[in-house]
């Protein structure tokens, strides 16, 4: 059992009259893949954006590596070591792999871009993740396949000695072989001791790589269980009804948005 690296307690978030997150508790453990599942509109992406500092939380407590923190923006989250790989890849087509991996955090030497050092580090990171599909780290992102782009986006997150990586549907747009590459990569991140959060709609993917499965239902965290202790159909029931046998909410029908 990994150490909790990121803990959320009682997180609430509203957009105007819409109460998206209700007292959500969520724990990310180092060295584990925590799958975050839920139906469309359950609040998965909102929760991730709150963690990443893109949205502010209305109330709730965040503890990072045991101490309380307040994240007020993407840069502060990044400074803590929290990285997000977004569903719609946040890569620039007109820049190459190295330039994308260091975007916003360029390495400087004498005030100028240190291209050689960035290239070396980028290649080292890709190599450490056993990425073998890229011919050159100077390839423009526009020339990469969907799987390669996702790989670059994930490698970018790892480059910064990050401790928690949040992946928002990393395999949604990928083919079979490319999904395989990305899932392998997700697993390797956890093996390197990172806390990994995987948002996915694909139960096969979730059961393949996740150590724990956290289910959101209408903005409420209804279950957070080890993947080995639940079955595929139980998780589907939790996602769709908020309850499965003894698991989940006592009265899901009373839940409102």
């Amino acid at each position: 059992m990994g150490e909790p690296i990121l803990e959320l307690r009682g997180v609430n978030k509203s957009f105007g009259p819409v109460h998206v997150l209700h007292d959500v508790d969520f724990t990310v453990r180092a060295g584990e893949v925590t799958a975050l599942v839920g139906d469309n509109g359950a609040g998965k992406s909102t929760l991730v954006k709150c963690i990443a500092g893109i949205h502010s939380m209305d109330s709730g407590e965040v503890r990072f590596a045991g101490s309380p923190v307040h994240v007020h923006g993407p840069r502060e989250a990044a400074a803590l070591g929290i990285e997000v790989v977004y569903q719609d890849l946040a890569l620039c087509d007109n820049l190459d792999i190295v330039q994308n991996m260091f975007l916003g955090r360029e390495q400087l030497r004498g005030g100028l871009l240190d291209e050689a050092e960035m290239e070396r580090k980028a290649r080292q990171t890709l190599a450490s993740l056993s990425v073998r599909t890229v011919k050159s780290v100077r390839t423009l992102v526009s020339a990469l396949s969907g799987g390669q782009r996702q790989t670059v986006a994930i490698a970018k997150a790892v480059l910064w000695e990050s401790r928690v990586v949040l992946l928002d549907e990393p395999t949604a747009a990928l083919g079979v072989a490319q999904t395989r590459q990305v899932l392998d990569l997700v697993r390797r991140l956890a093996e390197q001791g990172l806390g990994v959060v995987l948002i996915s709609h694909n139960m096969a993917d979730v059961f393949e790589v996740a150590d724990r499965i956290a289910t959101l239902y209408l903005g409420r965290m209804v279950a957070e269980l080890p993947a080995k202790e639940v079955t595929h159909s139980q998780v589907v029931e939790l996602i769709t009804a908020g309850r499965s046998g003894d698991l989940g909410m006592a009265r899901p029908e009373a839940a409102t948005v």
């Binding site: 620039c92 087509d93 007109n94 820049l95 975007l103 916003g104 005030g111 100028l112 871009l113």
Partner: peptide, 25 residues
């Protein structure tokens, strides 16, 4: 444009404004 991070950021904003924003630019 080629040697400063400001120039690199301009290329990024021109290529994908949202990606640039998320990168903290």
């Amino acid at each position: 444009l080629d040697r400063t991070s400001y120039g690199r950021h301009l290329y990024a904003v021109g290529g994908n404004r949202e990606a640039a924003r998320r990168a903290g630019i």
